[in-house]
Design a protein around this nucleic acid. Structure first.
Length: 265
DNA sequence: CAATCGTCCTGCGGGC
DNA sequence: TGCCCGCAGGACGATT
């Protein structure tokens, strides 16, 4: 469920807390989620934490970078007291101990994500097919990248990380609602004006959500608590749209999709 | 070539 | 009350 704003919030929180810290010990509890090869790097220093698409990158003072994808339910804890230490043990995948004795845990409920070391080549291979960042892409490039899939459904391509990154199920639905575009609308029936509107709304929604530290539905929380954008959702999991029309649901690319048949054409 | 399907995984909610 | 089933979904590989 973490999409761009949630991952960005987590990255900023980690950056503030662990950059320049030296990792002196790693305990791995879930080998499926956290690769034991990370231990080969010990000891190492975190030199930066960055985001690309929905991936988190932990840069180190070695040539190896730790790559993490949270998938649905991955999260991090940087506990500050005994109570937080206790809650960081739930769904624990790994604990990193720093030279100052503070700890960072990686946790995962559904265990679909991963955290693993990558050489520069491996990193390049894993990330090379990703589309452009939605907050940087121009409206012209946005149009051209999507418009070539003439027969596809618009929501499908908004969520396709090879077309444009960072937008997942929640923000795709919100952007389409605000742009008054039906999520299953064939791409070749969408006008240039509608594309421009969609581009604008995606940027506005993602920016607003980053300001509010993301959307907290179900399992997401950033390092300092819950986000605030869930209070601004207009269509996702709503029975009525903001104008009071009854919503419908349908499945697109295997994902539940809410839309307003009155507002979205 | 693009579109669709199955897979991974566990918590949760509905139904009986 | 308790159990079982199916759903939730991001990304990727296999299949159509």
């Amino acid at each position: 469920m973490p999409e761009l704003p949630e991952v960005e919030t987590i990255v900023r929180g980690l950056k503030d807390r662990i950059v320049s810290k030296k990792v002196i010990k790693i305990e791995i509890k879930d080998k499926k989620v956290v690769s034991t090869k990370i231990k080969d790097l010990l000891p190492f220093t975190i030199t930066n934490v960055t985001r690309r698409a929905k991936y988190l990158l932990f840069h180190t003072n070695t040539s190896t970078t730790l790559l993490c994808h949270l998938r649905m339910t991955g999260h991090f804890h940087y506990p500050q007291n005994k109570e937080e230490v206790q809650s960081s043990k739930k769904y624990l995948a790994a604990t990193f101990t720093f030279h100052d004795n503070s700890t960072l845990t990686h946790n995962s409920i559904r265990r679909l994500g991963f955290l693993k070391p990558c050489t520069p080549n491996e990193l390049h291979t894993l990330l090379q097919n990703l589309g452009p960042e939605p907050l940087i892409i121009s409206k012209e490039e946005f149009y051209h990248r999507i418009a070539k899939y003439q027969t596809g459904k618009i929501k499908e391509k908004l969520m396709d990380q090879n077309v444009i990154v960072g937008v997942g199920n929640i923000y795709a639905q919100e952007a389409l609602y605000q742009s008054k575009i039906h999520p299953a609308k064939r791409i070749d029936t969408i006008t240039k004006t509608q594309f421009n509107l969609l581009h604008k709304h995606i940027q506005q929604i993602l920016t607003h959500s980053i300001q509010l530290q993301g959307t907290s539905v179900k399992n997401y929380s950033h390092l300092a608590g819950k986000g605030g954008y869930q209070n601004h959702l207009q269509i996702y999991q709503k029975e009525q749209c903001p104008k009071g029309h009854a919503t419908n649901t349908l499945t697109i690319a295997g994902r539940g999709t809410y839309y307003c048949p009155t507002c979205q054409k």
